[in-house]
C-alpha cells in the first residue's frame, strides 16, 4: 500500500470514531464512563444560649432567690428526636474548709411555669422531633439558702446536655 492510501484509511477511521462518539452523545447516551456521586447530609444539632453566666445575690435573709439571669435556649436539630437534660454541680465556697451548697439547692423552671425542678441529677426537661421548628425556651433558676450557709462567694456550674436519639 502506498502512503496515500494509508492516510486515507486513517482519516476515514478517525471520522468514524468522531461520528460514533457524537452519535453516542446525541442519541442513546451510551455509557462510556460513569461517576459515582455521594451527597451526604450530615446530622446536626445547633444549640444557642443567651448567656452562660448565672448569678445570685442573696442580700436578704435565707430563703429562695430567683436569679435575674433568664437563660433563653434554642435547639435546632435534623435528627429524629433529641432530648435536653440539665444538671448542676455543688457550689463551692471561695474559702477552703467551708461546706458546699449541694446541687439540689439549685432548681429551674421552664418558660412561665411556677414549678421549679431540683437540679440534683440529670433532669430531662425538653424533647424535640425532626420536623419541629426551633422555638426558644426560657429557663429561670432558683437558689435556696438556709441559716446554716456561711456567707461568701460560691461557684459552680449548670450543664445543659443534648442527646440525639437514633
Amino acid at each position: 500500500m502506498n502512503i496515500k492510501k494509508i492516510k486515507t484509511l486513517l482519516v476515514l477511521l478517525f471520522i468514524s470514531i468522531i461520528s460514533n462518539t457524537h452519535s453516542a452523545i446525541d442519541t442513546d447516551m451510551q455509557e462510556v464512563a460513569s461517576l459515582n456521586v455521594n451527597a451526604v447530609v450530615a446530622p446536626y444539632t445547633t444549640v444557642s444560649v443567651s448567656t452562660n453566666e448565672l448569678s445570685f445575690s442573696v442580700l436578704g435573709t435565707p430563703g429562695a432567690y430567683i436569679s435575674t439571669d433568664v437563660v433563653t435556649l434554642t435547639v435546632d436539630s435534623n435528627q429524629s428526636t433529641w432530648s435536653a437534660f440539665a444538671q448542676a454541680s455543688s457550689l463551692v465556697h471561695n474559702d477552703f474548709g467551708v461546706a458546699d451548697l449541694p446541687a439540689e439547692r439549685l432548681s429551674f423552671a421552664i418558660n412561665d411555669s411556677k414549678q421549679f425542678l431540683p437540679l440534683k441529677n440529670n433532669v430531662l426537661f425538653l424533647q424535640g422531633v425532626i420536623d419541629q421548628e426551633p422555638e426558644p425556651v426560657k429557663l429561670s433558676f432558683r437558689l435556696t439558702t438556709t441559716w446554716q450557709d456561711t456567707p461568701g462567694i460560691y461557684k459552680g456550674k449548670v450543664t445543659i446536655a443534648f442527646l440525639n436519639n437514633p
Partner: peptide, 9 residues
C-alpha cells in the same frame, strides 16, 4: 453547654 454559676451570700 456549661453555665457558670456564682452565688454571693
Amino acid at each position: 453547654v456549661d453555665m457558670q454559676v456564682q452565688a454571693d451570700i
